[in-house]
Nucleic acid binder design. Sequence first.
DNA 1: AAATATTTTTAGACTAATCTAAATCTTTTT
DNA 2: AAAAAGATTTAGATTAGTCTAAAAATATTT
Lengths: 220, 220
Amino acid sequence: MANSFTEENYLKIIHNLSGPEGAEVSTNALAEGTATRAASVTDMLKKLAEKGLINYKKYQGVTLTEMGEKLALKIIRKHRLWEVFLVEKLGFGWDEVHDIAEELEHIPSDRLVDRLSAFLGNPQFDPHGDPIPDAKGNMPTADYLKLSEVEIGDKVLMMGVLDHETPFLQHLDRSGIMLGCRMEVREINDYDRSALVLIDDVKTLFISQEVSKNLLVQRL
Amino acid sequence: MANSFTEENYLKIIHNLSGPEGAEVSTNALAEGTATRAASVTDMLKKLAEKGLINYKKYQGVTLTEMGEKLALKIIRKHRLWEVFLVEKLGFGWDEVHDIAEELEHIPSDRLVDRLSAFLGNPQFDPHGDPIPDAKGNMPTADYLKLSEVEIGDKVLMMGVLDHETPFLQHLDRSGIMLGCRMEVREINDYDRSALVLIDDVKTLFISQEVSKNLLVQRL
DNA sequence: AAATATTTTTAGACTAATCTAAATCTTTTT
DNA sequence: AAAAAGATTTAGATTAGTCTAAAAATATTT
Ligand SMILES: [Mn+2]
Ligand SMILES: [Mn+2]
Ligand SMILES: [Mn+2]
Ligand SMILES: [Mn+2]
């Protein structure tokens, strides 16, 4: 039997909450992530365990099985490829594509995904800088640091965002911060960790820690 | 409240069965079209009537309201645009795209549809020759006739198909019949109405009435 | 115009995904 | 190591979409 949208969303959210080490995810965390109640989560976990997609023991939290992990990566691959399509081909802003991709990610057909990927030039990263797993589930690695972690004088490239919500992305747009731009940290205020940053060698900008904590960068 | 996939499918099927004059559609016809039982159809018709999408009086069959018609055309527009995308941009064959489009047609977002349409050059017809409604619901008119209706000596252009199923389309592929090809009817057998047709001035082909009844053409 | 056949609707039930409230297990605090 | 707090599961309902079987309406045939 195929998997419902709901089941796919659970897998994706378990994957995301589970982090790179595949840690256990709690029922409550999932209730929060799926915007449902803990009781509903328990029901769904039983079903996913039944299907062999998660490891579940009562009261012990869940992890994805190998099969569940594969499926989660497939959904994430679709999500991110569609985001690339929407931005690169249809001209959407990076702040507009997440919600549409939430729907498109559930369209089945492996051939569709692979052809879409080829059409887009097999991109490695989505419009938010997130890595796109290949057809086999391999994620391009990229170990970035947060802008809030770099020091005065460091020169970095802006490589991704941690907050994917529209208001944050629009704030970056208004500030002229975009993927690939060059940043040089000029000052860091001890008091609130806000920073003065030179963008693309032309413009200086004040960036609050609130913002710099959500910017992924790479040292030059 | 938004409309579910199921509701959207009912609207589309009512539209299709209703024909160009918007004739009443029977419960049984819908049961057949939706691959469900008549009792289930009755339930759904009550709901759609409740929402003001259809005109429904017990035992009398249904028609779409203006609102229902608008919605149906929107779904058909999406379906056909995605089919164009799949064929023109992703390189799928015309026999492979219908089922995928059945899913994509339910993705919401008017902006997505309009941008997709623009990206494709606002096409007027889909890969099967079916007209694509514009954003306002206007269908390009095209009054074609069936190949089975033309006479000996007539020269026509192949403009569309009535059967959208994979086996039929693959049969056409194998026969070298494609949208836009030129056809000249050389002979028609009285007995079974099969025809001998010259394709693109180079190749003659036997076409059974089974096939010619499903080919839409335009007189030259 | 009856009788018969066909179509459609109603009645009652099932599954998936959700909920609230109550019960139970686990963790933390005293 | 009890008690209290917190997290999780169970119990029992609800809604959407479906089903079968039976009843009611309509259409067709005699
Ligand atoms: Mn996203
Ligand atoms: Mn993204
Ligand atoms: Mn189609
Ligand atoms: Mn089509």
